[in-house]
Amino acid sequence: MSIVNNAHPGSSLVLLNLIDRYLLARGKPVSRVEMLTTLRPDNLPLTENAEKRFEWNLNFWLEQGLWATSEDGAISLVPNPQHQDLPTRLLAKIVSNTSTFKDDEILEGSRTEPFLRAITSLLPQRAFTFLGGKTLGSSNAAEVVNNFLPGKKLNETNELSGFLAFADFLGFLEPVEKAYVIDPTRAIKPYLPTIFSDEGRLPIKTVVERLGVYLPMLDGGRYRRLIEPLMEGFEFDEPYEISAALSHALVRLESSFQIRLERPSDDSTSLNLQLPGQAQRSVGEVHYISQNNE
Rank of each mutant, 00 (worst) to 15 (best):
D72W: 00
N97I: 03
P79F: 00
K102Q: 15
R89C: 07
T157G: 05
R89I: 01
S139P: 04
G109N: 07
N80Q: 11
L160M: 13
F101P: 04
R111C: 14
L62D: 06
V144F: 01
G109R: 06
D72P: 02
L136W: 00
K134Y: 01
L62K: 13
P81R: 08
E63L: 06
N147L: 14
N80W: 01
E63C: 02
N146I: 03
S76F: 02
G162A: 11
D72V: 02
P114K: 03
L164Y: 06
A74I: 00
D104H: 15
L123T: 09
P150Q: 11
S161F: 09
T129P: 00
F163E: 11
N57F: 06
R111Q: 15
S76I: 02
L122N: 07
P150G: 13
E143F: 13
F169D: 10
N80Y: 05
I94Y: 04
L86F: 04
V78G: 08
E113Y: 05
W67D: 10
Q125K: 07
L160Y: 13
L86W: 07
T135S: 08
L160R: 11
S138R: 12
K152S: 13
S96Q: 13
L116V: 04
E156R: 15
L131N: 01
T88C: 11
A127I: 00
L116Y: 03
D168Q: 13
E105Q: 15
L164N: 10
T120G: 14
F169M: 09
N155E: 14
P81I: 02
L107D: 13
S76V: 03
P114C: 07
Q125M: 06
A127R: 07
A92G: 06
P150K: 13
K153Q: 12
Q64C: 04
Q82S: 13
L62R: 14
L136H: 00
T88V: 06
I94R: 10
T120V: 10
E156W: 05
K153A: 10
L136Y: 00
Q125E: 06
K102P: 03
H83F: 15
E105C: 08
N147I: 05
T120A: 14
K93G: 15
A74M: 08
F148H: 13
N80L: 06
P79I: 01
L131A: 04
L58R: 12
E108T: 15
R126K: 04
L91R: 07
L131D: 00
D103Y: 05
G109L: 03
I119D: 14
P124H: 01
L62F: 05
T112C: 15
L164K: 11
F130A: 08
S121H: 05
